[in-house]
Amino acid sequence: MRRGKTFIISGPSGVGKSTVLSALLEKRGNVYFSVSATTRDPRPGEENGVHYHFLDVDTFRKWIVNDEFLEYAEYVGNFYGTPKKYVDTAMNQGKDVILDIEVQGAIQVTGKRPDVVRIFIAPPSWAELERRLTERGTDSQEKIQKRLLRAKVEFQTAHTYDYFVINDTVENAVRELDAIMTAEHCKPKERMEIISGR
Score class of each variant (00 low, 15 high):
residue 25 L to I: 05
residue 26 E to N: 06
residue 26 E to Q: 09
residue 26 E to V: 04
residue 27 K to C: 05
residue 27 K to P: 01
residue 28 R to D: 05
residue 28 R to N: 09
residue 28 R to P: 05
residue 29 G to Y: 09
residue 29 G to F: 08
residue 29 G to A: 13
residue 32 Y to G: 02
residue 32 Y to N: 04
residue 32 Y to E: 07
residue 34 S to G: 13
residue 34 S to L: 14
residue 34 S to A: 15
residue 35 V to Y: 00
residue 35 V to K: 00
residue 35 V to R: 00
residue 35 V to F: 01
residue 37 A to I: 02
residue 37 A to N: 02
residue 37 A to L: 04
residue 38 T to A: 03
residue 38 T to Q: 00
residue 38 T to C: 03
residue 41 D to Q: 09
residue 41 D to S: 10
residue 41 D to T: 07
residue 42 P to S: 05
residue 42 P to V: 03
residue 42 P to F: 02
residue 43 R to Q: 07
residue 45 G to K: 00
residue 45 G to M: 00
residue 46 E to T: 01
residue 46 E to Q: 04
residue 49 G to D: 01
residue 51 H to E: 09
residue 51 H to V: 04
residue 51 H to A: 08
residue 54 F to H: 01
residue 54 F to D: 00
residue 56 D to A: 02
residue 56 D to T: 01
residue 57 V to M: 05
residue 57 V to S: 04
residue 58 D to W: 03
residue 59 T to E: 11
residue 59 T to A: 12
residue 59 T to K: 06
residue 60 F to V: 00
residue 60 F to P: 00
residue 61 R to H: 09
residue 61 R to V: 07
residue 61 R to L: 10
residue 62 K to D: 11
residue 62 K to P: 05
residue 63 W to E: 06
residue 64 I to R: 09
residue 66 N to M: 12
residue 67 D to C: 10
residue 67 D to V: 09
residue 67 D to G: 11
residue 67 D to Q: 13
residue 68 E to M: 13
residue 68 E to Y: 12
residue 68 E to D: 14
residue 69 F to G: 07
residue 69 F to W: 12
residue 69 F to A: 07
residue 70 L to I: 11
residue 71 E to Q: 14
residue 71 E to R: 09
residue 71 E to K: 10
residue 72 Y to F: 14
residue 73 A to N: 13
residue 74 E to T: 08
residue 74 E to D: 11
residue 74 E to L: 10
residue 75 Y to G: 04
residue 76 V to F: 11
residue 77 G to T: 00
residue 77 G to C: 01
residue 77 G to P: 00
residue 78 N to M: 01
residue 78 N to F: 02
residue 79 F to S: 05
residue 82 T to L: 15
residue 82 T to K: 12
residue 82 T to R: 11
residue 84 K to Q: 10
residue 84 K to A: 09
residue 84 K to N: 08
residue 84 K to H: 08
residue 84 K to Y: 08
residue 85 K to A: 14
residue 85 K to S: 14
residue 85 K to Q: 15
residue 86 Y to N: 08
residue 88 D to P: 06
residue 88 D to K: 13
residue 88 D to W: 13
residue 88 D to V: 15
residue 90 A to S: 05
residue 90 A to T: 03
residue 90 A to N: 02
residue 90 A to K: 01
residue 91 M to N: 12
residue 91 M to L: 12
residue 92 N to K: 10
residue 93 Q to C: 10
residue 94 G to S: 04
residue 96 D to N: 09
residue 97 V to Q: 06
residue 101 I to T: 11
residue 102 E to I: 14
residue 103 V to Y: 04
residue 103 V to T: 13
residue 104 Q to N: 15
residue 106 A to K: 11
residue 106 A to Q: 12
residue 106 A to H: 10
residue 107 I to K: 10
residue 107 I to R: 07
residue 107 I to E: 10
residue 108 Q to C: 10
residue 108 Q to T: 10
residue 109 V to T: 15
residue 109 V to I: 15
residue 109 V to L: 14
residue 110 T to D: 13
residue 110 T to K: 15
residue 110 T to P: 11
residue 112 K to H: 14
residue 112 K to C: 13
residue 113 R to M: 15
residue 113 R to A: 13
residue 114 P to F: 12
residue 115 D to V: 08
residue 115 D to T: 10
residue 115 D to R: 07
residue 116 V to E: 05
residue 116 V to A: 08
